[in-house]
Design a protein around this nucleic acid. Structure first.
Length: 489
RNA sequence: GAGCCAUUAGCUCAGUUGGAAGAGCACCUGACUUUUAAUCAGGGUGUCGUUGGUUCGAGUCCAACAUGGCUCACCA
């Protein structure tokens, strides 16, 4: 059975045209083509380009045949411009070829810039060249491609027909560029640390497991670069950052993709207050630079990113929203009872710190719409953060929340190797007790700390979620070019 | 992992009470030398997601499965 038998009529017709072109000695998949202008330059600089010769290239998006003359819109990366092709200028043979081209074909056009009777800036063609034949029909010109599944699976089609999609990814690229420029200016060094870890660390998450054949060893796709970046602080690099993918083997949702992009940075001799300033600065200046404003609209609300952002301790925030004062609650069982009084059930073995966190997530987090720093996290849920000297039950740690979502997580880094080793041991006990997301012991990391790591501030920002905020996207899939999809069939 | 919803032509969508599968765009043929959702005349598109079941008869009712969306759970 040949493939042809499976094709519908539209595809058969296009393949017929392809054969016809070949029979006429025309290469349907052309080569290098020199253009002088992009579509947007022609429409944007009409006064100086009027009557000038230009050469453009792009995809045919619409076509209106009027007999001996045809209008079409050609789309390139910058946008669309209309072309006017008349038999008088291009000749019988080329005109015939052109009228048989399809919407979706890629062509080159040379001609002069003019304005039609109705006032549309156009290119009056004197030559049209087929550069690539399209064998599949594009979605409808008016409604575009709406089927979200098809949009994600065939992003290339989505990008062709839905211009606002391209805009999102341009903003994404510019925001990341702005962050890089900002950090470079501050003297940070961009580094790349391993994606494949023998011991997954730096976060509480389930990893993807893979296997190296020659070494016959288990490897994990990284859940965070943190422990490697801090080894670089030990090595004396002082200010480092990495913007790259993390992988977590967990559920998929509008806010979670198994691979996602994180910024992590570490600054020697700084602490978490410096990281708050830097967070405000990075986010607000990226918005200002890319969008031209620090007031962004998200899901119908205006979010004001202008620094400074309010800072409130986790305990104060809980007190404010629930009336519960955990400062007066000193052990695990008391904490459990208190949570019960406001209608929360907690696990039997839950610690005071994890209960505080649960109460916070349940009662406070949903209310944090405008940018807010929540500071001083309980030590039990912060195994890599420095203990507060005034009260060892808390750490010098904050998270930044915007639109009830965690945007940034940062702390004064724990650089005491003995304390770190104890915390790893506690985590290992939790792991042994069945918590498969608890941290694992990393002996080499302890070894590194034993050489001495300068006191430092560290910061992580979830880039995808930041881009969602800045592009008013409600799903993480809308800011990922190729979100993970289950294969069909 | 759970609940709800969706799946009909290449795309966007109708499809009545269970009784001969539809429209627009796109496509093909013809007309038309400044159109623009071009227009006019003609043409026909199909595994109704898959597999079963009920029925004289299923796009329509029932079940299972698949994929996707939303909500929840987990997480960032």
């Amino acid at each position: 059975m040949t493939q042809e038998l499976d094709l519908n009529e539209l595809l058969v017709v296009r393949r017929g045209k392809l054969d016809e072109l070949k029979a006429r000695g025309i290469d349907p998949f052309g080569a290098r083509f020199s253009r002088t202008h992009k579509a947007q330059e022609i429409t944007g600089r009409f006064p100086e380009l009027e009557n000038q010769g230009v050469v453009i290239a792009g995809r045919i998006m619409t076509k209106r045949n009027m007999g001996k003359a045809t209008f079409a819109h050609v789309q390139d990366v910058s946008g669309q411009v209309q072309i006017y092709v008349r038999v008088n200028e291009v000749g019988e043979e080329q005109y015939d070829l052109f009228t048989h081209m399809d919407i979706g074909d890629i062509l080159g056009v040379s001609g002069k810039v003019f304005k039609t009777k109705k006032g549309e800036i156009s290119v009056w063609a004197d030559e049209v060249t087929l550069l690539s034949k399209s064998l599949r029909p594009l979605p409808e010109k008016w409604h575009g491609l709406k089927d979200v599944e098809l949009r994600y699976r065939q992003r290339y089609v989505d990008l062709i027909v839905n211009p606002e999609v391209k805009e999102v990814f341009i903003v994404r690229s510019r925001v990341i560029r702005a962050i890089r420029n900002h950090l470079d200016k501050l003297g940070f060094l961009e580094v790349e640390t391993p994606m494949m870890h023998p011991i997954p660390g730096g976060a509480t998450a389930r990893p993807f497991i893979t296997h190296h054949n020659t070494l016959d060893m288990e490897l994990y796709l990284r859940i965070a670069p943190e422990l490697y970046l801090k080894r670089l602080l030990v090595g004396g690099l002082e200010k480092v950052y990495e913007i790259n993918r993390n992988f977590r083997n967990e559920g998929i949702s509008t806010k979670h993709n198994p691979e996602f992009t994180m910024l992590e940075l570490y600054q020697a001799y700084a602490d978490y207050t410096d990281m708050m300033k830097l967070t405000e600065e990075l986010v607000s200046s990226a918005a200002e630079e890319v969008l031209g404003t620090m007031k962004v609209e998200y899901e119908g609300q205006v979010i004001d990113l202008t620094p400074p952002w309010p800072r409130i301790t986790m305990l104060d925030a809980i007190k404010q929203h629930t009336g519960l004062d955990f400062a007066t609650i000193n052990d695990d069982s008391e904490a459990g009872e208190a949570a019960g009084r406001i209608g929360m059930e907690v696990d039997k073995g839950a610690t005071r710190g994890s209960i505080i966190n649960e109460v916070f997530e349940e009662f406070v987090e949903p209310k944090l719409i405008q940018p807010t720093f929540i500071i001083d996290y309980p030590i039990e849920i912060s195994p890599l953060a420095k203990r507060k000297s005034e009260d060892p039950r808390y750490t010098y740690r904050f998270e930044a929340f915007i639109y009830a979502r965690e945007m940034a997580n940062a702390f004064s880094e724990l650089n005491d190797p003995t304390d770190q080793e104890q915390r790893f041991r506690q985590q290992a006990e939790q792991r042994a007790a069945g918590d498969d997301e608890a941290h694992r012991m990393d002996e080499d990391y302890i070894n590194a700390l034993e050489y001495g790591m300068p006191p430092a501030g560290g910061l992580g920002i979830g880039i995808d979620r930041l881009i969602m905020l800045l592009t008013n996207s409600s799903s993480i899939r809308d800011v990922l070019l190729f979100p993970l999809m289950k294969p069909r069939e």
